[in-house]
């Protein structure tokens, strides 16, 4: 049977992708951001998963305002990196484990999570930046060393799904993955955040104390984290900090008891606090 080994929480700032694509990760500004992922890349190599289940959001790239699904599962064979207005990132096409994705789609709906099924979808920095930071420099003509099942969450138009809903969806995703008959190692990513506000007069808001408490909750009290209200995210972490509900999907898919393998926190990357955590399921 397939098995979830671990969860990864990770910001997905577009400028991090630009820094990698233009080769400036060693300059003074970016160095501390990338140093925190050194250990993660070694860990990832050791774990060598077959599939990443990657929870992210689209930033008005593949989805425009015509259609705004709350949860959309990527079921197509592959996903092209999208042009977000400054040209597509020079990274490989993302390949799905299509059979497993179909199984998950079916299992989720039968478990009363009525997701949208996407058979064609481009993917933006929300998906490709976490892959890049966790797997290192992989060029356009190479291949990602893993198959990826994307789950795209609406966090752009208020309200995003509640933290509680996301946490419970994580549990349903785990049931779906662990009822898949093939012996596959899966790692689940929850991406986005941490505190940041990109818009209007309060842009630039960062709340490091709040972020660090959230990282603590990820390890020690995930249920507590799942009860954080939308209003608290908006007020305390900035209008775009609400992306952190996506970490709760990842956390819901893990055991209650986990071991924190690694944590990294740095301000700033562009407008954003970069947060990262690796949690392994205890046997």
């Amino acid at each position: 049977m397939a098995k979830i080994l671990a969860g990864v929480g990770c910001s997905h700032v577009p400028a991090i992708g630009v820094a990698m694509d233009t080769g400036i990760t060693h300059d003074d500004y970016w160095k501390p951001v990338f140093e925190g992922f050194q250990k993660s890349r070694e860990w990832m190599k050791k774990k060598n998963p077959d599939v990443i289940f990657l929870v992210y959001n689209d930033h008005c790239t593949a989805f425009d305002a015509r259609c705004i699904p709350t949860f959309a599962l990527g079921c197509g064979a592959e996903f092209q990196p999208a042009d977000e207005g400054w040209g597509p990132r020079p990274v490989p096409v993302v390949k799905n484990h299509q059979k497993m994705a179909s199984h998950i789609a079916q299992s989720l709906v039968l478990n009363e999570f009525d997701i949208t099924i996407m058979n064609e979808m481009e993917v933006d920095h929300g998906l490709t930046v976490p892959l890049s930071v966790m797997f290192g420099d992989i060029k356009k003509n190479d291949e990602w060393p893993v198959l990826v099942i994307p789950l795209c969450v609406n966090v752009v138009q208020y309200p995003a799904p509640t933290g509680n809903r996301c946490f419970n969806l994580g549990k349903a995703i785990r049931r779906a993955i662990e009822s898949y008959e093939e012996d596959l190692d899966v790692i689940i990513f929850g991406t986005g955040g941490m505190s940041h506000q990109l818009q209007y007069k309060r842009a630039g808001l960062i709340n490091s104390d709040w972020d660090k408490r959230f990282l603590d909750l990820m390890t020690e009290d995930p249920f507590g984290a799942s009860q954080i209200t939308h209003l608290e995210y908006l007020r305390e972490t900035g209008s775009e900090g609400i992306e952190m509900v996506m970490w709760l999907i990842m956390r819901g898919a893990l055991n209650d008891n986990v071991t924190e393998i690694h944590r990294h926190y740095h301000v700033p990357a562009s407008n954003t606090a970069v947060g990262h955590i690796i949690l392994e399921n205890n046997e």
């Binding site: 305002a65 208020y158 209007y200 007069k201 309060r202 842009a203 209003l231 908006l234």
Partner: peptide, 21 residues
């Protein structure tokens, strides 16, 4: 709306989405 008292912030909700379509 409960989030209207956050300063310097415009919450993009369904009303805004309709107006800005």
């Amino acid at each position: 709306k409960e989030y209207n008292n956050i300063p310097g912030t415009i919450v993009f909700d369904a009303d805004r989405s309709r107006e800005g379509y």
